[in-house]
Amino acid sequence: MMTLIAYGTIALLLGITSALAHRRATTRHRDVAADAWVQLQPLLLRLPPALLAGVFLAGLVPEQQVVGLLGEASGAYGVLLATVIGGILPGGPMIAFPLALALLEAGMGVAQMVTLITAWSVLALHRVLVFEAPMMGWRFAGRRLLASLPVAPAAGFLTLAAETVLAG
């Protein structure tokens, strides 16, 4: 089922975008394929070891501690803790998602995981240092970070609320 949904979504989006591009004289499918190839190249070497590391890590994570600190039962406290962990988690998706898989399989709660990924995406201190502050200036970056602080806990609490509604 999961395979069907995932592959179906991608196929549908690919169908729509390529059909739209086909109707435009200026967009050539060959150029698009070349763009995608440029992006694929670095992944060819990195992805297999990253995935291996992620799956091996999943088996090594101390499950009881993860469940205790960030499991479903950790509630609001777990959401706040996940915000802190997500905010300081360095690196791109190649590190974050295998780790997320490992933590989720070790028993981390869904709301806490939503919080962690949201905090990692909006706060992304590494990205602020490398891209945002140099390009936009510290004033903009600081104002955005401050305005983004409540965003990750909000996502976590919304998930908790959604779970309650779905369960009730």
Binding site: L14, T17, S18, A36, L40
Partner: peptide, 16 residues
């Protein structure tokens, strides 16, 4: 296959 498809979708969106 998901990765390949998603990269192509991204490349199309960027051109469109």
């Amino acid at each position: 296959p998901v990765l390949l498809g998603a990269l192509l979708v991204g490349a199309y969106v960027q051109r469109l």
